[in-house]
Structures are given as structure tokens and as C-alpha cells.
Design a protein around this nucleic acid. Sequence first.
DNA 1: CGAAACTGATTATATAGTATAACTATTCGT
DNA 2: ACGAATAGTTATACTATATAATCAGTTTCG
Lengths: 149, 149
Amino acid sequence: MRADAGLRDLVGYRMKRAFAVIQADLSRVLEPFGLRMIPFSALVVIARQPGIGQGQLAAALAVERSNLVAPLDGLEARGLIRREAVPGDRRALALKPTPAGLTLAEAALAAVRAHEARLMAGVSEADVAALFRACAAIETVPEREETSG
Amino acid sequence: MRADAGLRDLVGYRMKRAFAVIQADLSRVLEPFGLRMIPFSALVVIARQPGIGQGQLAAALAVERSNLVAPLDGLEARGLIRREAVPGDRRALALKPTPAGLTLAEAALAAVRAHEARLMAGVSEADVAALFRACAAIETVPEREETSG
DNA sequence: CGAAACTGATTATATAGTATAACTATTCGT
DNA sequence: ACGAATAGTTATACTATATAATCAGTTTCG
């Protein structure tokens, strides 16, 4: 009997354990780039979508706007992104990657992909595809307020 | 183009998003039982393996021993578990569920299973099986110090 | 026997992630 | 013009997790 019997058939428990491994690996991979998960994700999205606003970015990454301020401060201080004024709206700031930011984004993304390939070496292509389908389905489950009625 | 393009093919990113949904649902499910994730997991394992030690429990759940002390204090204070002295070793404490603890463990586990079923309603049996296989494979990836040599 | 190394549990502390509320400045709707 | 809504920021709190140090008790072995 496994030491955590009773929990091993729970999707949440299993994903937590697996994700912890991925997260630890990811942290090691990003460390030489001076990035952590949120700044990394933000930088990649900004690189792909120059001019995106902070609110849009927060929505895209499913994090609170307020929790993005410090990470973006860090990226800006390192000269990886800039916050540009938006002509029509003086509240908004357009996030744009600098050339250094673009370079770092691509390099970090390549490193992450390489390490993920290693992490998933023991998983078949078909199972990876199933994993992605399952994640997509879970992500889109409705929030279940008043399911009755 | 999705707002988080460039990240959506990363396993870590997708699992993080999906796990966040599961975690939020799990918190809601456990709330009426007065449990959170770690105490819940601990209680279930203790219920299944009466007499387990805190170090063993920590290893089983992959958490640090020190991070288990407060949750176990809570469970003990609520009369759900007891820490019994171990005859042969006066350092060790054997964790045992009380009748109330056993009852609550089973009720909470049933509720969690029911809600997971709802959460996974849109995922085929085969894909769930693949998800479990993928998680198992990821969990057992070696720690990768000196891969070269 | 008795010192050193080890183990089980605990305490204290630091860091990261996340959630919430409140605030400023600006824009929009009427 | 006025109130509501929006973009960004600040402050704060709570949870999770990691680490080091401490204390009591046990084991090893000269």
C-alpha cells in the first residue's frame, strides 16, 4: 500500500504533486535568466503582443492586476520592457519589449521548452495530448454558483 | 490568437492554470468541513494508516515535517486525531484518528470525490487515465543533479 | 560507560504566491 | 457637470513552502 493511499485517485492531489515537480524544475531553469514564473510569463506574452495593457496581461495570465505591478517593475528596471503612454488614453500604459527583452524571452522560452521535453520524456505523445485536453476542459468548467434552480 | 499565446504549449503553464481551478473548487468543498488542503490530506492518510508518525506522514504527502506541525495541532485541537506516545521510542508520536476524525475524513473524501467528478465531467475516462499516467511519470522524474558525467 | 552522530518533533523565520480593499487619475455616459 | 466605470498602483493579509536552529531521545562505537 502506498503511503498516501486514499488520495492517489484524486485528480487534485495528483496534479498538485506533479505540478510541484514541474515548478521546481522550472525555477531552476529560469534562475540563470534572473526570471521567475510570473515575470517569465509576462515577458513572453509582452514579447508576443507588444502594446498589451497591464489589465489585459493580468487577464491573459489569470493573475490579479495588483500582483503584476512588482514583477513588471522588475522587468522594466532590468530594461527588458518599457511602459509606454497610450496616445488616446492617459490612464493606460502599453507594455512593450525592448530588444534585450525580446532576446531574453526567446532564450528563456527555448530553455523552458527543452527542460519540459526532458520532464515529459516518459510520457507518450498521446498522453501529453490527453493531458492538454484535460487541462483545457478543467479550465473551462463553469464557476458553479447556484447549480440548482 | 489567444491572449497567452506562446505559453499555451507549455505543460507547466497549462497545469498551473488547471490546478488553480481545482484548488479553488477544493477549497470551497472543504470549507464546510473546516478543512483545508493539507489538514484534509493529513486526516485522510491518518485515517487509512492509524499510528503513522509525523515524519512518515510528511514524506507521504511530500511536505516538510515542520509544515505539518500547525495543521496537526489544528486537527488535534478539534478532536479529530490524537498524538499517542509510542511505547518503544519516546521521541516518536503515533498519529491516530478519533471516531469523529474517521467520520469527517470519510465525509470530506466523499465530497471531494463528488466534486472532482463534476470537475472532470467534460474529460473522457481515457483522458483521465492518461492524465494520471502523465502525473505519475512527472512525479518520478529523477532530480537531475549531474545529468552529465 | 560515555561522547558523537543521528532521528523525531518543534519553533522561528523568510520568501513567494495570491486575494482584497482602498486610492489616484482618467475616461465615459447621460 | 456629475456619477459610474476603468487603468494602474499601494497596502495588507493570508496561505504555502523552505530553511535553520533547537530540544529530547536514541543509536553507534571507541
